[in-house]
Amino acid sequence: MPPRDNGHEEPVIRDKRKIDPETGQARGASATQEAPAPKAEEAPVDGDLLAERTADLQRLQAEYTNYRRRVERDRVSMREQAVAGTLAELLPVLDDIGRARDHGELTGGFAKVAESLEAVVTKLGLTSFGQKGDPFDPTVHEALMHSYSPDVTEPTAIEVLQPGYRIGERVLRPARVAVAEPTEPSEPAEEPDSSASPASADDDEN
């Protein structure tokens, strides 16, 4: 005999447990997992802008390199000027040492001091120039005496009165020398006029 329908629906029971009692697995785990966020699309790089920024960077690097070179060049130039100024003040002392050596007076402790001083100035780049027999060069020689000599074929320093000094390519003092030039050629003697014939001379006598 079928059950009587009294007009009431049977209650629906919903299992809201998160763990399935039969399998022990979490229910809806795959559904609750969040999908990874989509990656933001990178904006395309403008080729003209990249070239412009690269050119700016290269220009800055070139300017910095030139600046470093200019600073180094100025530093070397200032050092050379300072050294040259100091050595120029010592030239009279070196002249006195040279004269004492020529007269045989450079002996004893004075000789040791002189040798030490000459070694120091040589280490700083000071060199002397000017030798007897050098061709006269007005850029490095100063002529204090002038004469003529048959023994030279061009203007020549026949005596060094004071040596010259230079540091590198810079002349601190020219060599002061006596200069001789070749002997001036003598003027040829005038010869008598031989254009008149003997016959014309006899005519004049008659």
Rank of each mutant, 00 (worst) to 15 (best):
I167N: 08
P11G: 01
D20P: 07
D74G: 12
E63K: 11
T86A: 13
M145L: 12
G7E: 00
D5W: 00
L90M: 04
I167P: 03
E89L: 08
E105W: 00
P44W: 01
V140Q: 15
S77F: 11
V160I: 08
R27G: 09
H141I: 03
R75Y: 06
P155L: 09
E89S: 12
V76Q: 15
V113K: 11
T65H: 12
A100Y: 00
P198R: 12
E118M: 06
P185C: 14
R14T: 12
G98C: 01
D56P: 00
L106H: 03
P163M: 02
L49E: 13
R176G: 02
N66K: 14
L60Y: 06
G85D: 07
E42W: 04
Y148V: 13
D48K: 10
V71A: 11
D48M: 10
D203P: 01
E10V: 04
R176I: 00
A84H: 09
D5Q: 04
E184P: 12
A178K: 01
S200D: 15
E63V: 09
R73H: 15
D20R: 08
Q61P: 01
V45D: 04
E142A: 11
G47M: 07
D46V: 01
Q33F: 08
E159D: 07
E190G: 07
E105Y: 00
P185S: 15
S128P: 03
E159M: 00
A100T: 01
R79K: 14
D74V: 10
L87Y: 01
Y67G: 14
E42C: 05
S197V: 08
D203K: 13
V113C: 06
A82H: 10
V93L: 05
E115Y: 04
R75N: 12
T32L: 15
Q131W: 03
Y67E: 14
